[in-house]
Nucleic acid binder design. Structure first.
Lengths: 214, 214, 214, 214
DNA sequence: CATGAATGAGGATTCATTCAT
DNA sequence: GATGAATGAATCCTCATTCAT
């Protein structure tokens, strides 16, 4: 009656899996259609459950969305912050490493599409906006800022306005992610090649940030 | 805008003004709330007409949106293409000039908010996506591309992958515009300063594109 | 094309009639089924319009209900207050007159069923409770109280606790109205005869309120 | 309640207590919110059991409600009927005694709130209506009627329409109970004082029912 | 006996679009 | 041309009831 390797009854194991199944279905649809345009019934169907079941796990659409962000973005952010704090090499190397990890972990997953949606819909869902700004945007900016400041401090970058430069660096990465999930993206795929895009970005950026060649 | 000799009776001039009044109301709301979340009734009210009147001028919501794009973005794009074709100086100068004009003309107007909305909503409105991709995105990319190619051809830029670099350049500008109208933007306003942002962008970019200092 | 006796276009005359038609449908269903159990769609259908039309006139269910109360109860209350203020005869006569008018005007209409519903549902709809308490209950109590006080002051009633006696008098009248619309009422109809009930009520009451026979 | 010699193991005694715990939770919520608005999940939680357990004891919401009535109202009714049958003194005394017992036993308990709810909701739940009419309303009316008839027969009351007068007497008592649990009740509590209300009721009533003073 | 996960029908509300005037 | 009343499909959320464990 019970799997000898797992003492829980089957439906209880099911219950443990449900949240993840629901979040997986939710992120797919949120990223594809946006927050408002995603119907909870579709999320449920995609997860193979009924509408009502969704509400057993998340009290409403906004909480479901927050849970998606918590599961798909925040863990990565934590790891990235840690790696920044511990890194010991050249700041250009640190920047490259963070960008590349970002690309590998967020960029390859559906999570890369969340930013696009918040950009456009936050204004219609103030509580979501507040949550995302505080939990994701602010932390991300702080992390990038700290890399730039470290570089300047250590003489590895020339001096510049770190506040603006932080945005200048984040902007193309966010846009890259947005484009990946956008119907107005630089065409079907041949024009937008994430790896090449990031290489170009790091290329121009590192050329631009490093102290003048001497 | 109006010919001082205009002999039409006032209400007829009124009639001529209608489309513009409607588009002005529409762009405000589209940019603030997005395409789907904008209620045509609100557009009508803001323009001071009834809901029915809107339909006298635009057959549906999508056509209204296209008209907004046609009025607020395409004219600028045409002028920019022309100026690129005619420019004679250093390519870095041309790039700076196009970016600054973009900033002054699109960036300062509500039109800067259109991109953000298309990014997120195009997928739900395929015909809009097609229209925007062809009329705006492709033309913009072609224009920037041609500047880069010109720079390389004339030895004013070092050699690089122009396709990706085009995206790398467009991305932060689009993101800057998106942020201007976004509730998740880099905070209260002090962190995001468009002029400083663009200066930083040109700074790093020109540093990065120019041939190695010699 | 237009009725010569009414210069309004037909659909505009319709618009004037709508609110009343909707309120008439609403009071029927509210009184029969209660506030929560009444479906707005049924109200609309009964009024011969679509669900959406209801929302053109009343922003939500609670506002519809308030409008019902405003149309069906408050006008009578105003008239009754006035007649109390102006009355000049014996207080027993005044009491009888107010009770009989109440019976004729509220009692015979659907409005008599509102009290029953508020009794039970107010707790689930706090704003409705506040509204009804202030606009209906308080005013009614004040009116009855003033009659009793007048009677005692003029020596036409014996002395008693007017606060409690006000409730004692209101209670059976409210219950009579409640029963008229209740499925647990004193049986099908032969046992509860409103006129006879009120006669009995006035009989016992006036016997009870008048000064001891002398 | 429990036999001190009870030899059952604790959980079995627990089992015996379940129905009562469930009914206690149920009456609280039914009286506060009404029948339809009470969620079975809340009843279960308040009784400290799971939703499913409720269905082990009562096949559905309606049966739960009936059980509440059977436990909280019918026993008192039986005792009252008995005391009427056995009483030997003056009918006014009998009436006062029944009223006061009613007040003490039903009035002080949650059971006093059942009437209010049936008044409003019976129509939506026909089987409940039938049950309540037959088991509670009819028996109550028969009991009061018999007191009045006895009084007239014995020359202790003047002659009047006993059918109507029964309603006239029941009405304020039911309304008193309804008000106790109602959000539209005669205000904050100072205006409605059950004891004083009943005194006033008996005062006016007995004044009104007794034969003319001679 | 007891649990609580799962279901799905049901209802309030919104809004693009139509059309009679 | 202009109006705005009317429509009804669409979607979030609730909750009585079932049933596998």
């Amino acid at each position: 009656m019970q799997c000898p390797l797992d003492s829980k009854p089957r439906w209880e194991r099911r219950k443990d899996a449900r949240p993840h199944e629901l979040l997986a279905a939710a992120i797919d649809l949120f990223v594809e259609r946006g927050f408002a345009a995603t119907r909870l019934e579709d999320v449920a169907r995609r997860a193979g459950v009924s509408k009502g079941t969704l509400y057993l796990y998340y009290t409403n659409k906004e909480e479901l969305f927050k849970a998606v962000v918590r599961e798909s973005i925040l863990p990565f952010l934590g790891k990235a912050e840690l790696s920044v704090a511990e890194f010991e090499g050249h700041s250009a190397e640190l920047l490259r490493s963070v960008v590349m990890n970002w690309s590998r972990q967020i960029g390859q997953s559906k999570a890369s599409g969340i930013g696009k949606l918040m950009l456009a819909e936050a204004v219609n869902f103030p509580e979501l906006a507040r949550f995302y700004r505080e939990e994701v945007m602010s932390r991300t900016r702080r992390m990038i800022s700290s890399i730039l400041e470290r570089g300047i401090r250590r003489g590895e970058f020339r001096s510049f306005d770190t506040v603006q430069m932080t945005q200048v660096l984040i902007a193309p990465m966010m846009m890259l992610n947005a484009w990946k999930h956008s119907a107005v993206a630089p065409c079907a795929s041949d024009e937008l090649q994430p790896q090449a895009f990031l290489e170009s970005l790091l290329d121009v950026t590192l050329h631009g940030l490093l102290p003048r060649a001497s």
